[in-house]
Structures are given as structure tokens and as C-alpha cells.
Design a protein around this nucleic acid. Structure first.
Lengths: 354, 354
DNA sequence: TTGAAAGCGTTACCAC
DNA sequence: GTGGTAACGCTTTCAA
């Protein structure tokens, strides 16, 4: 029995104590505190007072267990250190917390198996929904984990393999990359280098955009593609490969801002002047792109919006599950001096492809 | 192939179903599944099999309610979009998830009242501990919220007002900033500009380091201080103020990487050459600092480590609460060409006061 | 309008 | 060893 009435109780007061102190039933306290109608002003006052006096705070763990909801959503990403992801998380968090949801953040470090494991943990925690930016689109464990829940799932910037009952919020990489390519072609570039990440939607869309744009101009796509991780180290390797190729591209497109620093290293090491000897386009705007000398032309997008829309779609699904068509958010190209006209080493038309 | 699905099982199996299927008592299932000793291999096998067949996953909400622990910790920061914070969160997350804890991430947007409110929500969620990087050190609501719990709290890079029962993981800003200042003094600079954030520990420590270093060299601190938000916009304003001052400093120290982009704008707008007409030091290394021309001298620190240590201290406290002394992590100075010898104003056609 | 009581899915204390 | 059965703190019928 809780028969102690003579010392400092540091123990967090429960609904039971509040009821006792207010001299009312437990159910009434619950009703009043959860704002349900149908209580006399008198009762309400007594309960509120008691709650205040005891510094009562409901135990969400118990509340949620009973209500069969957790008012929390899980976010699975590769690495929060990536400013892109950070921005997405930030956007999602603001929308979700405004709606009374908490965000459980997990990093997978880009490892597909970890993705799956994290999803499972979040599911056990009874998250009401999931926002996922998986490392891979066809990892069996990840797909299985996502399929194992009836909670709504929103996938960001990926097109999952198979037919999963999930919702998509995607960037229209094709759009901005098309613009970028058109710009490069207009400047006279005919051979491009393209560095992309793993075989995921953004990489494919970027490649497709470049190829299509070549075709659109009646040209045969002359393209050197390098795919790998999106790290500064790989950016440097990729750029090295491009620059030392037998027939080096005159312009390079970097499919990720993480590649930029390394790529610039390689360019600088060779003493090449951007926009003159080599043109460069990067994806996703960062301070470095803007302030570099010369500034780097960029395919950009509103990453915070990506997170916000994902959160909105998720909340919508939690409220009322229904099929959706993918949300496609625009990307656009910003021309900057890192792209310049191709320097033609020839003085008269020589052999042309075709 | 243990993939048996006789029909559509949308209902998540509970421990009760497992017990029934295994033909054993509920308590036994609980014991086996939570790895408690004292069950016959036979029983174990039957339970495990049943659990596997039903795809049983324990409901952490219920488990935690009963166990009076949530295996989760709350992280309160201002804005995950800040790469520094992102790195700290990343470091903490890796340690915590390795220890079986989930991270509840909240952003306060730098608003002190939101800090408090977020802390309260996390506490209601019964987090086992809190890692907080509060906007302010003396906000009453924040202090009250932190004082209201018996769960361990680790504060990062702040020195809270009053005497709170919390633990500290701090950066030794004094160290690196002292080195930076010594370097500038050695280059002949005698008047410095220092831009810092709000009145929080890092700002105070940086200021103290600069002043002490002047004194250490037997000089009177000739210092122009600007404090405000740590944003690119403010970086530009601060730099403008420095450059247009009656007696402009010959070297400027930026107390936060977010200031850098704006400050560089201001420098560039005036056509000043870094390391020649004006020297610049920034805090916390970013790609922009490294790749800028010239590269920016930097006071750096291991931010991921900051998060890791915070998580470690927290886990330690959860296991065994006891007083601790603050953890102090080093910062260091990296000299780069943005700092050069002071140019003696000789042929300068500018009016001087006096 | 109010309150007693039955759970939510687990764990843990007891008997057996 | 094993299995009832009370809690955990809350919400929600269902009577009163």
C-alpha cells in the first residue's frame, strides 16, 4: 500500500496519486487530463490542481501501450554527418514534432544489413511510421523488414525493388541534370565524365538525363561513367581517372557533394583551371561550391523540403492509409564559372562521330 | 526455408500466442526469450521454434513499461543542419545503438523555451538519459526541466548556471584558441577581431584565451569583439564591422564555421587578399576551410568524439550513477595561408585617429 | 457526470 | 524447471 505520507517523495507521481489527492476516481483524472469532454468544471479544477501540485506528467510509455500508438516515427538513414541527410532529417523533424511526434534517429553507416536491423528495432518500438533512405534498393533483408510491418513507410530518393506497399518522396534528378547537360553541350563539350554513387535511383536518373540530353541534341552520348561511394576519397579517384584517361572528358559532372572536395584536389594537383581546361558541375549546393574560386556550377534541390514532404506524406498515411503516387520534387541547375566553353584544339573540322 | 506463412497474418503475434503454440506457459516464454537461465533445453527449443514460426517480435513498449526502462536516450540540440551538431549526433548514435539504445532526436531551432519543452517530452517518454546541447546556459525553463529528472544528463559544450546534477563533456576551446592567437601575435598582429556566438562557454573560453595570450606576451589586449548568432549572415555583418572600423583589426578570428561563408563574402567584396591584407582564423574544420584559396587556418576538434564521449559518460551513469568531473576534449590549431605577417601600414593613405 | 474494473504485452514473484 | 498471476501506468467500456 502506498501509505507513506511523511517524507520527500522524489518518485514521479502517477495518475493514481493524482486521483487520490484530488479525491476522485482514476478514470476521471484520465478523462480530464486527456481533454475529453463531459466532466464538471468542478471536477476538472480539482484534478488540474492536484496534477499541478504533484508535478504530474503522464507516462507516455504506458499511455502509448494502452492507446496502441507510440506517437513516434523512425528515421533510417546512412549517415547523419552527410549534410544532405542532416537537412532532410531537420526538415522531417520540424514537421513531425509540430504534429506531436518524436523522431527516433538511426544511422546505418551505409551498410544494407544494418538498415534492416535498424528498421526491425524501430518496428519493435512500435513506431507509428517509418521514413527510410536505404543504402540499397534491392537488399533482401531491408525489403523483408519493410514488408513486415503494416505501419506506413515513406522512402526517400530511392525506388525499392519489387512491389512494396510504401510511399515515395523523390527528387527529380533527371530535370536538373538535363539542364546541366544542355548547358555543357551548349558550351561545346562533347565528351563528359560522370561520377555517380551506387546503383540507386539518383545515379540512374542522372545517367539517364545525361544520355537523353545527348540524344535530344542529335548527338551520340560520349560519356565516361564512374560509379562508387560518395566520398571525398572516391571523388579524387574518379577525377584522376577522368583526367588521365586516354581521351579525357572536357567536362565532369559529380553526382554528389561529398565527391567535390576530392575532385577539386585532383584538379588542383594537376594545376588545371576550372572553367577553362576542365569544366565541372556538382550536385547539391554547399558552401564550398558557392565560395570556391571559381564557384562551382550546381544541380541543386531543396533538401529540407524533401524531409518535410516525407513527414507530411507519412502523417497523412498514419491518419488515413491510402495508395499514393510518388511525390517528385524539382531539382534545378545553377550556372557558375566552373563551366566554360570547351577549348577546341583543332582549327578546322576534322573527323566527326557518325 | 523457414519461411512459413500459412495465410495472411497481419496481427503481430504476442507472447501469449507463442506460449500457446509452444504449449507452454507465458512465463516460460518470457524467460526463454529474454535469455534468462534455468530452462530446459527442451523448453527452450520449443519456445524458440514457436517464436520463429510466428515471427514473434517483443513489444518494446510493453517490455519497457514493465522493466521501467526505455532503452532510449534523448538528444536535444539546436539544429541538426549544423554540421557540427550532425557530427556530434553521429558519434553519440553509434555508441548508443551499439549498446542497444535508441536515440530520440529533437531540434530546438536554437530557441531556449523549445529546449525546455523538448526535454520535457523526452522525459515523459521515459528516456533513460539525456544528452543536451542547450542554446543558453541560464534559461530558467531549461534548468527547471533538467532539474526535474533523476535520469542522468550529459551536457555538451555548455556550463549550465546554478548547480545542476549533470555531467559535462566539453571542448577545450581555450587550448586551440590560445595557439591560434600566439600564431597571430607571432606574425606581428597586434589588433584582432573576434566574432563569437551568444554568451555561452565556447564564446567565453575563446575570448579568455585570446585575452590571456595577449597578456602572456606582455601585451595589452587590443581586441574588437562581435557577438551574435552563428550564421553566415552574421559572419558577413561581423566582418563588415571589423573591416570598416575606425581602426580595423589586421587579423580576424571566427568562432564558428557557420560564420565563414559570410565573412569570406565580405572580404571578397572588398577585394582583400587573405593572408596579406587581412588574416583569418576560423573554428571547426570544414571542406570550405581546407579548399578555399588560400586555405583557412583553423582551430579544430574531433566533434564525433565529442558525441561519443558524451554517450559513453551517459551509459556509464545509467549503469552506475556517480559524480564525475567534466570531460575536456582538446582542440588544436592548424596553421594555413589565410594567416600572414601583418603589413606595416606605411604608404597607406588612410586617416588615423590621433 | 463519475468510477470500478478490465485490459494493453511484458516481466517477475511465487507456488507447484 | 515450470506456469499461474499480479503488477507496470494508463485508457476505456460499462454500470451506477
Amino acid at each position: 500500500m502506498s501509505n507513506n505520507s511523511s517524507s520527500f517523495e522524489t518518485k514521479r507521481a502517477g495518475i493514481k496519486e493524482v486521483a487520490k489527492r484530488a479525491g476522485v476516481g482514476i478514470a476521471s483524472v484520465s478523462r480530464v487530463l486527456s481533454g475529453q469532454p463531459g466532466s464538471s468544471p468542478q471536477l476538472i479544477e480539482r484534478v488540474m490542481q492536484a496534477a499541478r501540485e504533484l508535478g504530474y506528467m503522464p507516462n507516455l510509455m504506458a499511455q502509448n501501450l494502452r492507446r496502441r500508438t507510440s506517437k513516434s516515427i523512425g528515421f533510417v538513414g546512412s549517415d547523419i554527418t552527410n549534410p544532405l541527410l542532416a537537412s532532410i532529417v531537420g526538415g522531417a523533424e520540424s514537421v513531425l514534432s509540430a504534429a506531436g511526434y518524436s523522431v527516433l534517429l538511426t544511422n546505418s553507416g551505409g551498410q544494407p544489413e544494418v538498415d534492416a536491423q535498424r528498421i526491425e528495432v524501430l518496428l519493435q518500438r512500435q513506431v507509428d511510421g517509418l521514413i527510410v533512405l536505404p543504402a540499397l534498393e534491392d537488399n533482401a533483408a531491408t525489403l523483408a523488414a519493410l514488408a513486415s510491418t503494416t505501419a506506413p513507410v515513406v522512402i526517400i530518393d530511392r525506388a525499392m525493388a519489387g512491389s512494396l506497399d510504401v510511399h515515395y518522396v523523390l527528387s527529380d534528378h533527371y530535370l536538373g541534370m538535363g539542364e546541366a547537360t544542355r548547358h555543357l553541350l551548349k558550351l561545346g563539350h562533347r565528351r563528359l565524365g560522370l561520377a555517380v554513387g551506387q546503383d540507386v535511383r539518383p545515379s540512374r536518373e542522372r545517367l539517364r538525363a545525361v544520355e537523353d540530353t545527348f540524344r535530344e541534341k542529335g548527338l551520340v552520348a560520349d560519356l565516361m561513367v564512374d560509379s562508387g561511394s560518395l566520398s571525398p576519397e572516391h571523388g579524387e579517384r574518379a577525377m584522376e581517372r577522368f583526367l588521365t584517361a586516354a581521351r579525357p572528358p572536357t567536362a565532369v559532372i559529380l553526382g554528389g557533394n561529398q565527391l567535390l572536395e576530392g575532385a577539386l584536389h585532383a584538379v588542383r594537383k594537376r594545376g588545371l583551371r576550372l572553367g577553362e581546361q576542365i569544366s565541372l558541375v556538382c550536385c547539391d549546393d554547399v558552401a564550398l561550391s558557392r565560395m570556391y574560386d571559381p564557384p562551382i556550377a550546381t544541380v541543386l534541390r531543396d533538401t529540407a523540403l524533401l524531409g518535410q514532404r516525407a513527414a507530411e506524406v507519412l502523417l497523412e498515411q498514419i491518419k488515413d492509409p491510402h495508395p499514393t503516387t510518388p511525390v517528385l520534387l524539382p531539382t534545378s541547375f545553377v550556372q557558375r564559372p566552373s563551366c566554360g566553353p570547351v577549348v577546341t584544339p583543332k582549327k578546322r573540322p576534322s573527323r566527326r562521330p557518325g
